[in-house]
């Protein structure tokens, strides 16, 4: 189990990354799993920092629960209500280079790399729960 309270600024990514690397090393995660967990966390947290707030000084709570068969990532923030799972635009990954829009890949990668994703708004906070099977 890993619990961190991050400030809403990009530099905090280094702290979460170091903590995830420690946990992955202790539990001997395969390199792919470590990479994917780091990527999922970066994408979700960057989204919250970039779009969730007007001004700084906010907190983002991150919990990572490691069980034999699954990893559960819980991220909660007090930013504006936003469900990335249904409100983020889906990129056209089959478009050719000319027509391919820039951006929109972060949430798409998250959804592709986890096995379950749930969002709820509760007590003025966004709660995102992501489950990844360890297989």
């Amino acid at each position: 189990m890993l619990s961190l309270c991050l400030e809403s600024r990009l530099e905090e990514l280094q702290r979460i990354e170091a903590a995830v690397e420690d946990l992955g090393e202790r539990e001997q995660w395969p390199p792919n799993l470590l990479y994917q967990v780091k990527l999922v966390l970066e994408e979700v947290i960057v989204n919250i920092i970039n779009y969730g707030y007007e001004g700084g000084g906010h907190k983002i709570d991150v919990h990572l629960i490691s069980e034999p068969d699954t990893l559960t990532i819980k991220i909660a923030d007090d930013g504006r209500a936003f469900d990335p799972l249904s409100q983020a635009p889906t990129p056209d990954v089959d478009a050719n280079l000319e027509d391919r829009p820039i951006g929109g890949l972060g949430v798409y990668l998250v959804q592709s790399l986890v096995d379950e994703a749930h969002y709820r708004r509760e007590q003025h906070r966004n709660h995102l729960t992501l489950v990844k099977r360890r297989d």
């Binding site: 089959d94 478009a95 050719n96 890949l105 798409y108």
Partner: peptide, 29 residues
């Protein structure tokens, strides 16, 4: 591409390659 030049990419580590594939980048680069 706008000036008819092109980009090639090489030597991707496996997890990075997977991210390129999910993003459809392997179809455009």
């Amino acid at each position: 591409q706008q000036r008819s030049a092109k980009l090639l990419i090489c030597s991707l580590a496996e997890p990075i390659r997977e991210v390129f594939e999910i993003s459809g980048f392997d179809k455009i680069i």
